[in-house]
Design a protein around this nucleic acid. Structure first.
Lengths: 215, 215
DNA sequence: TATTTTTATCACCAATTGGTGATATATTGT
DNA sequence: ACAATATATCACCAATTGGTGATAAAAATA
């Protein structure tokens, strides 16, 4: 059957699968998801396209497996691992938003995936969105919801707006060299301005709550 | 040559061009911009594809002319036409953000165009973005910049984040039935929560400035 | 070594893509 | 009615798309 140490052999199924997955990543990075054609993928991988059907059941299966193979949120999840949360998640929220703003800007593959999720209705993409929702849900339910009480939903809406804004601005900055609201989102100047706005808005959001809390 | 009242005739160049533009809109609405193939466009228009090359110089020319033909921002520009701006643009900003949130959600074609601008580098799309920038620049320069003084840039960053967030959330709500930060962006409940957050954040933004202004 | 199974390639398919030259038909002007 | 012109259709092209059956070659098994 199979051998555990089947690495040195020229014909290696696992290695070939990895080549296809790497090809998907490369094409996604260079041409975007509209350039993901079976012929191109096979050519990029240096293998025959028939193997895509043999190993993944087709183009869709390969793409789904690629998306599943990427853990796009792992690098951003535990940025401030176990930081102080006795402030209602204020410092955590700040750190999370700032790190997301930076991480998404640098990770062009993630940008493509985010965009993809806005266009195509692929199951594996929905699973990705669901994962992000579930990790967020833990944070909300355990920390901010009890802290903000009756205004918990408004807090969620604020975070939603800021996260979504971060996504859009980062993607916009990559594909468009035009400004946005007069800000150059590629320059360090423009980006620090966004960072200032993020911390400012979070500060204001918690400031209000503190006042209400002390009635 | 030509006649002004050339409407009743069966062969009418202008009418045919309009048919092509309408076909682009229909396909864009149903299949998205990835479905914009010359053969499909011609079939949808009920005309021969050769005319696309004769009249528009090709597929790109046709698409560019479609984008130019649409004035996507006209409906949202003068929502609060000449409203009170002696409050530093506070009420105007609120009205603008809320109307954008509603308008973009309803206008699926505009969503496609916004998405398109995040993917393809089409000149006509950049012109659209530039138009939005220029109209915004007038507002910023004349009203909010002098009002916020040294914090003018931060104000711009806040508006950028909120506008971008609105875009992303509206598009997300259309193509994805999943929640975002636990909010159902399709339901009236979830959407009013976002609206609350928008007004809240604008209030907070101006509140701070008032305090600083009175030193 | 011989055989079987796995891995990979090849040739080929129908359908679709963008694009064009030749031609037909309608409209206009004389 | 006639030619000239504008409008539209048609047949066809090469290149690319997704997809498959037959076959070759390497590896594992006997």
């Amino acid at each position: 059957m199979e051998q555990e140490t089947a690495v040195k052999s020229l014909r290696n199924k696992e290695k070939s699968k990895q080549k296809f997955l790497a090809a998907v990543e490369k094409i996604l990075h260079t041409k975007g998801f509209s350039g993901l054609k079976v012929n191109d993928i096979a050519r990029t991988a240096g293998l025959d396209k028939k193997l895509i059907y043999n190993y993944f059941g087709g183009k869709d299966g390969l793409i789904d497996e690629y998306i599943r193979s990427q853990d796009f949120w792992s690098n951003v999840k535990d940025e401030s691992g176990g930081a102080a949360v006795n402030d209602g998640g204020k410092t955590f929220a700040k750190a999370m938003l700032l790190s997301q703003f930076d991480y998404v800007f640098k990770n062009k593959d993630l940008q493509k995936i985010l965009l993809w999720g806005l266009i195509e209705n692929r199951k594996s993409l929905k699973k990705l969105a669901n994962d992000r929702e579930e990790t967020g849900a833990v944070l909300f339910k355990s920390i901010t919801d009890p802290y903000f009480g009756e205004n918990a939903k408004r807090y969620r809406a604020i975070i939603a707006l800021l996260i979504a804004g971060i996504y859009y601005l980062d993607i916009y900055a990559t594909t468009n060299d035009c400004t946005f609201c007069g800000l150059d989102l590629k320059s360090a100047d423009g980006r620090s301005e966004i960072e200032n706005a993020l911390t400012f808005l979070i500060d204001k959001t918690y400031e209000e709550e503190k006042r209400e809390e002390s009635f």
